[in-house]
Simulated assay, not measured.
Amino acid sequence: MNFRKYIWVGVLLLTFVGCKIRPKRSSEIINVNHRLSSLIFINKYIDFGKVRQDTLLIGKYRFYNSGSDTLFIKYVNPDCSCTGYSLSNDTIQPLDTAFIELKFDTKEKLGFNKIYTTVRANTQTEFYKLTLKAYVEEE
Results as ranks from 00 to 15, higher is better:
56 L>C: 11
115 I>W: 07
121 A>W: 01
66 S>W: 11
10 G>P: 03
91 T>V: 14
1 M>S: 13
112 F>I: 09
113 N>V: 12
2 N>V: 03
125 T>H: 12
40 I>W: 01
7 I>H: 06
21 I>P: 04
18 G>P: 01
17 V>L: 15
26 S>G: 02
45 Y>M: 04
23 P>F: 10
42 I>K: 11
62 R>S: 15
76 V>F: 01
74 K>Q: 14
1 M>Q: 10
29 I>L: 14
7 I>D: 07
104 F>C: 02
118 T>W: 09
22 R>F: 12
101 E>I: 12
105 D>E: 12
3 F>P: 03
34 H>M: 08
2 N>D: 12
15 T>K: 02
46 I>N: 06
98 A>D: 05
71 L>N: 01
136 V>L: 05
131 T>Q: 08
18 G>N: 04
8 W>M: 13
28 E>M: 08
98 A>Y: 01
59 G>E: 02
125 T>N: 14
9 V>I: 15
34 H>Y: 09
117 T>C: 15
51 V>W: 06
54 D>C: 05
86 S>E: 13
139 E>I: 12
71 L>I: 04
106 T>C: 07
49 G>S: 01
24 K>T: 09
133 K>P: 01
42 I>N: 14
26 S>N: 05
6 Y>C: 04
78 P>Q: 05
73 I>A: 04
111 G>C: 12
58 I>D: 13
95 L>R: 09
99 F>W: 07
88 S>E: 13
36 L>K: 12
21 I>C: 08
80 C>G: 03
77 N>H: 13
66 S>L: 08
44 K>H: 11
38 S>K: 14
92 I>K: 00
86 S>D: 07
108 E>A: 14
77 N>E: 13
44 K>L: 06
92 I>W: 00
123 T>D: 02
102 L>H: 02
108 E>D: 15
59 G>F: 03
1 M>L: 07
122 N>V: 04
24 K>M: 11
131 T>E: 12
92 I>E: 00
45 Y>A: 00
32 V>I: 13
47 D>H: 06
54 D>M: 09
93 Q>C: 00
68 S>A: 09
20 K>E: 13
5 K>G: 08
120 R>Y: 10
25 R>M: 11
64 Y>L: 14
64 Y>G: 10
41 F>S: 04
105 D>I: 06
56 L>Q: 13
29 I>K: 04
11 V>C: 11
127 F>L: 12
58 I>A: 13
93 Q>W: 01
30 I>S: 06
139 E>H: 06
11 V>D: 06
79 D>I: 06
28 E>V: 11
129 K>C: 03
81 S>V: 12
116 Y>E: 09
2 N>T: 13
135 Y>W: 04
71 L>E: 02
130 L>A: 08
3 F>K: 13
52 R>Y: 10
59 G>W: 01
134 A>N: 00
133 K>T: 11
119 V>K: 05
116 Y>H: 08
60 K>S: 14
65 N>H: 10
70 T>Y: 02
99 F>N: 12
17 V>R: 02
98 A>W: 00
90 D>E: 11
130 L>T: 04
89 N>S: 15
114 K>T: 07
17 V>Q: 02
65 N>D: 09
80 C>R: 11
95 L>I: 06
59 G>P: 01
